[in-house]
């Protein structure tokens, strides 16, 4: 279990997280909701080690391998979808497994050989999702992973994500309660600090 205790983060005078206590159950999905500015992404960055808390601690993170879907796609524009995914995988990973995963997420044909800068927003999002889910990680942080996907692609991708997240410790950040429901969890509500 990952135990978050008294976690506080300020940006200048603005308190974004104020003594937050939260448990992320081992091998389960924890869904987090809240309005803009309630500190969801800040919490994700603290979990990923990209920011340092002003107070409090996160227990149970030691030696965990991390993977994330960020709010932005964050892809290497000049590389193909498969190369973007393989960048974060072990060298021993079978390249055909990457192609298979991309196909499962609805990418095939031309989209596999083009640089990602030539892909549509939805296709790029799927590459970012496959990259995170194929990584050999003990903690998955998914920050609004389905943002920008049309309804048809969203259903396909959500099924793929649910399957790949099974048994893995996952933090799902979302604005949509239906997404949390899809994963069979009740979302935890973060409130905006004054």
């Amino acid at each position: 279990m990952i135990a978050i205790r008294g976690l506080t983060k300020r940006f200048g005078d603005q308190v974004v997280l104020d003594a937050l206590d939260l448990d992320l159950a081992e091998g389960r999905v924890t869904a987090l909701m809240g309005p803009n500015g309630s500190g969801k992404t800040t919490l994700a960055r603290l979990l990923l080690g990209l920011a340092v808390p002003d107070a409090g601690e996160i227990r149970g993170l030691d030696d965990r391998r991390l993977a994330a879907v960020f709010q932005e796609d964050r892809l290497c524009e000049q590389l193909t979808a498969a190369r973007n995914v393989r960048l974060v995988l072990a060298r021993t990973t079978d390249p055909s497994a990457v192609d298979d995963a991309l196909r499962l997420a609805g990418l095939d044909g031309d989209t596999l050989v083009k640089p990602v800068r030539e892909l549509s927003g939805g296709q790029r999002r799927r590459v970012a999702i496959v990259r995170a889910l194929m990584a050999d990680a003990d903690l998955l942080v998914l920050d609004e992973p389905f943002k920008g996907l049309d309804s048809e692609a969203k259903t396909l991708v959500m099924s793929y994500v649910r399957e790949r997240c099974a048994g893995r410790t996952t933090l799902l950040i979302t604005h949509d309660p239906a997404e949390a429901e899809w994963f069979g969890v009740r979302p935890i509500e973060l409130t905006r600090q004054k």
């Binding site: 990209l50 391998r65 991390l66 994330a68 960020f70 932005e72 964050r74 960048l87 974060v88 990259r131």
Partner: peptide, 12 residues
């Protein structure tokens, strides 16, 4: 910076 963060998170 955002790509450098990706590399850091995934341990590239």
């Amino acid at each position: 910076r955002s790509l450098l963060e990706v590399a850091a998170v995934f341990g590239v």
